[in-house]
Amino acid sequence: MSHDVTHTRTQQEYEYDRKRANLGMRNQVTVFALMIFLTFIAFASVQAGMSAYLVAPLILLFAAVQVALQLYYFMHWSEKGHGMAQFFMYSAAFIAFTMILAFITIIWW
């Protein structure tokens, strides 16, 4: 606990890690492209003037997918050691959902 344990990787390990990181970064760019695509579809479907009953669930779904991508890739949830982070974020999302549901149903208007 008192001193940092530093571990120097061997040349092979280092090169392997580097390669994996490069692949990972390429993956991130793909994810980014997908996010841009989803955003574009969302804006376009609203602009196209289709029925709100179709568009609203669609763009909410897109938002959820985009946020999941952001969390699992950009914020590294897909890597190991994020169990507690996920637990607290999912709990927060659950409470958020309950609260928003209450505010659009039982707030009196």
């Binding site: 707030i107 009196w108 208007w109």
Partner: peptide, 12 residues
Amino acid sequence: GNTIIWEHLFWI
């Protein structure tokens, strides 16, 4: 505005 919002927030 809506005064019930405070009640909800306070009790949440």
